[in-house]
Structures are given as structure tokens and as C-alpha cells.
Amino acid sequence: MNTTISNSVLTASINHSGAELFSLKDNQNKEYIWEGNPDFWGKHSPVLFPIVGTLKNNTYTIDGKEYHLTRHGFARDMEFELIAKTENSATFSLQSNEETLKKYPFEFELQLIYTLEEASLRIEYKVINKAAVKMPFSIGAHPAIALPEKFKNYAFEFEKEETLKYYLLENDLISNNTRVLETSHNLVPLDYKLFENDALIFKTLKSNSLTILENSKPYVKVDFEDFPSLGIWTKDQAHFICIEPWLGYSDTAENSGDLFKKEGILTLEANQTFHSKFSIKIV
């Protein structure tokens, strides 16, 4: 089941499965979200919760008891309920249930709120701890921006001049090996070779936004002020780039397994609500 919202500039469509954005078109019917071709990657913009990335051995512990979660958690594979709708906004909800409690022993509600404002789509996350205990979690976005032209015609422009140190993955875990992304006036030309070792993972950035340039002109801007970490990823020869604002990331090989001690984890107090947002702007 799908829900569509629109304004005078944009139309967005969201699948109730995973509350996943799968289309963002302008009023000329130009599509800005990846089509989801399974030959490359069959997703569009999955929601990452209650973890981001991969756990060591897909396992973690709470109070010494083992639980298992696959990469990026379960929210992206679950059916959300549409709980509010206007012409230009839609709110989706996922509640903890018997199935989630086996994998993640916390009572929660996760809300996704999509709102169109002129040429921007704002995507908000609300995590509500419905239990009387502290709840550890991570949350992240994974939107795949469609790149209709040749990959080499695109570049990134980071908001601020900074040293762009990123971490390399080994067996899907964060390693201690780092590299620095070379820039010229904050610009990074796109090249598939950048992603030979999977995603570029930035634990911290000064920049709060990143603009994709098409033929040296602004194309799409992603603002992620509420998210300290960022992943950037594509598949070889695929016509998309994922700009992934994160609160959390994969385990390291040295991780103890205790979810409360996981690097980058957030902790939500009993009966409290966490809120964050990012936006995709067509420029």
C-alpha cells in the first residue's frame, strides 16, 4: 500500500512497507529517487532502526542476554500504519510487538513524518520509549538519489571546508583504517573507484549539508544538521548515490557486544521521545 503527498513543486510517494520513500518527482515529472532495480540494489530509501550498520556476529547483549539483529535492523522490513495525512504531509507509525520484542526487548513507537515544503522534502523521526527502562538505539536514513546522467558528470560539494576522514569497512565492521577524501574547494568528483571498499563512513563532520552537482550545477541538496555521522554509498555502474545521515554506525571488531556500550549508540530515558530530521531539497 502506498501514500502520495504533493504541493505545487513536488510529489512524494511512500510505501507503507518500511515507510519507505520510493518516489520524489518535480512538477515536470522528473524523478529524483532511485528506481530500485534489483540487479544493483532493490531498495529506494530504507529506514535504519533500531541499529545502523552491522553488529559483530549479528549479535548483541542486554543484561548478559543475547539477541540477534541483521544489518540495519528490522524497521525497513515491517509494515507501518498511516496515522495522519494532509495534502502535503503523512505520518507513519511502527509499534513494538511480539515479533520485535524477540529481537529487541524494548517497547517503542517509531514515527516517520514526511512533509513537503516548497522544493524540499523534510523527513522526521520520532522514537518514543514506551517502557519504564532506558532504551538504547540508533537511527539512520538511506535515500538513494537517482543520477540519470553518466556518473562522472556528478560531484559532491560539502558545506564546509574540512578534513574528510572516513573509516573503511572490514567484513561489514568499522575498522581502524582510515583515509582522507581529497577535495578541491570542497568539491569531490564522483568516481566508482571511491566505493571499491563499500561505503564511505564519516563518524563526524563539520558540514551539516552536502550538495550533489550535476554538470557543475546544483542538483540535490541534503541537509542533516541533526545527524553527526554520514555514510555515502553506491554500487558499481549503478545510477544512484546514497547520502545517509546516521545516528550510529556498524560495530568495530573490538566491540564488547553490550548494546549500551556500543560506539555511537543513543540512550532514551523511560517514557521519553527522541526527535530528529533531515531534508532533501531539489535545487
Rank of each mutant, 00 (worst) to 15 (best):
P143V: 12
N58W: 02
P218F: 03
I139D: 13
T163V: 13
I174S: 07
H142R: 01
P50I: 05
S89G: 02
V47H: 06
E244M: 06
Y32Q: 10
R71I: 14
N129D: 10
K206F: 05
Q28C: 12
P228T: 07
H44A: 06
L169I: 11
Y154V: 11
L10Q: 04
G42T: 01
G231L: 03
A141I: 06
N215Q: 05
H239N: 13
L190R: 01
T11A: 00
G73I: 03
M1L: 07
S120I: 04
I51A: 10
H142Y: 09
Y60Q: 00
G53Q: 02
N215I: 03
L266A: 12
T100Q: 08
K43R: 14
S8Q: 10
Y167V: 12
F151T: 11
I243V: 09
D191R: 09
E149A: 15
N88W: 01
F40H: 14
A155D: 01
L21S: 07
T86G: 01
F108K: 06
F74A: 03
E182A: 15
N197D: 15
E159T: 11
S229C: 05
N15V: 09
S96Y: 00
T54P: 02
N208E: 11
Y166G: 10
S17C: 13
S256W: 00
E170S: 13
L187P: 09
V180F: 04
Q95W: 09
D226C: 02
K103H: 11
E157S: 08
F202I: 07
S120Q: 06
H68F: 12
E107H: 15
L187K: 15
N176Y: 11
A19M: 06
E87D: 13
P218L: 04
T273K: 12
I123W: 01
S250Y: 00
Y219V: 03
L169M: 14
T115V: 10
S23G: 06
E98F: 12
I128K: 14
K261A: 14
L259F: 08
E124F: 01
H16K: 13
I33D: 08
L69P: 12
Q237Y: 09
T59G: 04
G42R: 05
Y125Q: 11
H142I: 09
F151W: 08
V222P: 06
F195M: 03
T183P: 09
T204C: 11
H16A: 14
E161L: 09
L266W: 06
F240W: 00
L94D: 09
E149V: 08
K277I: 07
E35G: 14
A253K: 12
L230T: 06
S6R: 08
E196K: 15
K150G: 14
Y60K: 01
I243K: 00
A141S: 13
N255R: 07
D198H: 02
F260T: 04
G64C: 08
F195V: 01
E124H: 06
K103C: 14
E109L: 05
E109P: 03
T59V: 08
G36F: 01
P46I: 02
N153R: 09
K85I: 00
E225T: 13
W246A: 03
D223Y: 05
G36V: 02
T100I: 07
V9N: 10
